[in-house]
Design a binder for these strands. Structure first.
Length: 310
DNA sequence: GCATGTCAAGTTGTG
DNA sequence: CACAACTTGACATGC
């Protein structure tokens, strides 16, 4: 059983990228270090990091299964600095390329067999709505990198934000719409959009998502930081609209580290305050996945599952 | 061996 | 105008 069961409702709890108490350690490196190495030793080092990270993904899923965690967000750094302009590389450049592919496919099979959903959440540099062509081009490249990993592991979701405002949200949404078409259709099929904590609310994104067929990931913490006048109930149902039947919606939750009355509501706390979980969600008639964004990682997921079963 | 400084990228908001 | 915050630890380096 990978889902929390509350009455008839099934909530699938998700962990983001890392564990604090499990023997799962993802390695990384930096472009400035790689630049000092010859091409051969550079590729050797990267190959061994990527292979180890792929094995760690398997370990991560085994741990998730044991804990009843039903979704896992894979770190964008699984293959470090893959799209860097100077030290970027391709999987086929590696001595261990086939071994890495096999390891990632096995992780994907394990996820399917154990009903664990996989996703990616590329970071803040991926901006499809930027007025700067170079930023858009880099973002497209990075999304294609994410797609490669998603294809190997079977991850169904690549979740991004709309981007900056650049003085006009309406114009920026229009640019997103145009630039989105530049993505290969296989990549587009995995993209979701999430409301953010400073600019784009569920109301801002709903029309675009409906038109382009992009599922809207509802982050209730961001909605509280960056409200649009909609109640949580209304925003939830607006986001659910964008997920076609049979596709399980994603929600995100977190609690503010310094409390709701502080100047800084955005930083994430170690754990989720159960009071921040919208009671309305317990009455939904649809199953959903809830990614828990909390610093205590799997401990926070386990605590929230326990708190909600009371 | 341990402490420390560094790390590719964009954008916004604060001081 | 400069810098921190999103996230975020892990690594190489230097003592």
């Amino acid at each position: 059983m990978v889902t929390g069961e509350i009455g008839k409702l099934m909530i699938r709890f998700g962990l983001c990228c890392l564990f604090v108490n499990e023997p799962v350690r993802f390695r990384t490196t930096t472009a400035s270090y790689l630049k000092k190495l010859s091409r051969k030793s550079r590729l050797g080092k990267l190959s061994s990091i990527c292979l180890e990270n792929s094995k760690n993904l398997q370990r991560a899923l085994i741990s998730a299964k044991r804990m009843g965690i039903g979704a896992f967000r894979i770190s964008s750094d699984l293959f470090p600095v893959y799209t860097h302009p100077e030290t970027g590389y391709h999987l086929d450049d590696f001595p261990d390329a086939e071994h890495i592919r096999k390891t990632l496919r096995e992780a994907g099979t394990f996820a399917v067999e154990n009903n664990i959903r996989l996703s990616f959440h590329p970071d803040q540099f991926i901006i499809i709505s930027s007025p700067r062509n170079e930023v858009v081009a880099n973002s497209v490249r990075d999304l294609i990198y994410h797609f490669m990993l998603a294809d190997l592991t079977g991850a169904e979701i690549i979740n991004i934000h709309l981007g900056g405002r650049y003085g006009s949200k309406v114009d920026s949404i229009e640019r997103f719409r145009r630039n989105f078409e530049k993505l290969p259709s296989a990549v587009r099929a995995r993209i979701t959009l999430e409301n953010d904590d400073i600019s784009y609310t569920p109301s801002d994104l709903h029309g675009l998502c409906m038109e382009l067929g992009i599922p809207l990931v509802y982050d209730v913490h961001h909605h509280r930081c960056n409200p649009d006048g909609l109640s949580i109930e209304a925003a939830t149902s607006m986001c659910l609209d964008t997920w076609r039947k049979g596709k399980e919606p994603y929600f995100h939750i977190s609690s503010p580290r310094d409390g709701w009355n502080s100047g800084n509501k955005k930083s994430h706390a170690d754990y989720i305050d159960p009071g921040d979980f919208p009671t309305h969600w317990l009455k939904l008639r649809r199953n959903f996945t809830l990614d828990v964004e909390a610093k205590a990682k799997e401990l926070a997921v386990q605590r929230l599952m326990k708190d909600l079963r009371v």
